[in-house]
Design a protein around this nucleic acid. Structure first.
Lengths: 127, 127
DNA sequence: TAAATTCACTTGCGAAATGCAATCAATAAG
DNA sequence: CTTATTGATTGCATTTCGCAAGTGAATTTA
């Protein structure tokens, strides 16, 4: 029989089901989507023009690859990113922000400005 | 002889030492402070005028009390909140945003607006 | 002032998430 | 075809989370 992927996810995968919304509060719902230590850093990288798995892992914070996989999947489910062909006609995929994802840019910008103002020793990357 | 643990704190406490900054990125540093599912909800409650431990626990999301204790302590360490006497002459304490904490209001506001725009069924509380 | 109640946590513990290294299949390059 | 790179997955130890119960001081009530 031909090699096939498991229908969905088995016991070894991170996060089995989509977790329920904690409340109808818009802040709470936003945090349900990207309220953790890594997700907004991936979105930051996307805003910076990164599109490939390897590029995300090479950011200075060093996100573990299993966490990255999980967050990319979660962001895709949440409609914040989508997969597009990395090269014309190629089969490898790259990631891109959707319109919904793009709309997070002002929030990222405010976070950056806040950090620069209140946290000593922070600076924007020079890439 | 058995290898011994670097005697920081005992097994019962949440979070042993202040975790190190992951990178000098201002976004990353901001997330080191409040990048999780609960912290910004506590700040939201403070912005809404709540000041007491019990008030935070009675928010609809239902933060566990041990998590709340941990987050309040973390926010205090980060200079985002401070403790003030709850009543004149009383011994009970209440929590209040510092200037640094107040400066997070626009971020909360953007998160709220983003949620209202992109997440169906969200609404601001009527309290 | 004594008793009852509320408040602000702390503790214990099972479940879930995290972080790390190792591995692997598919694609791309040579 | 052979090798290297990419984009992940797997296993496992450690940490954190979430829930329920407990505790002692502060406040309120009788």
């Amino acid at each position: 029989m031909p090699s096939r992927k498991p229908a969905q996810k088995d016991s070894t995968s991170l996060r089995k089901t989509t977790p329920a919304r904690r409340s109808p509060c818009p802040v709470s719902c936003a945090l349900d989507l990207f309220g953790d230590r890594w997700t907004l850093l991936v979105i930051r990288d996307l805003v910076f023009g990164k599109t490939r798995f390897k590029e995300f892992t090479s950011s200075p914070e060093g996100i573990p690859t299993n966490i990255l996989s999980d967050r990319l999947e979660r962001l895709r489910e949440g409609g914040i990113i989508e997969q597009v062909p990395a090269t014309e006609g190629g089969k490898r995929m790259a990631y891109a922000l959707t319109e919904k994802g793009m709309s997070l840019r002002p929030i990222l910008k405010m976070l950056r400005d806040w950090g620069l103002q209140w946290e000593d020793g922070t600076r924007v990357s020079l890439e």
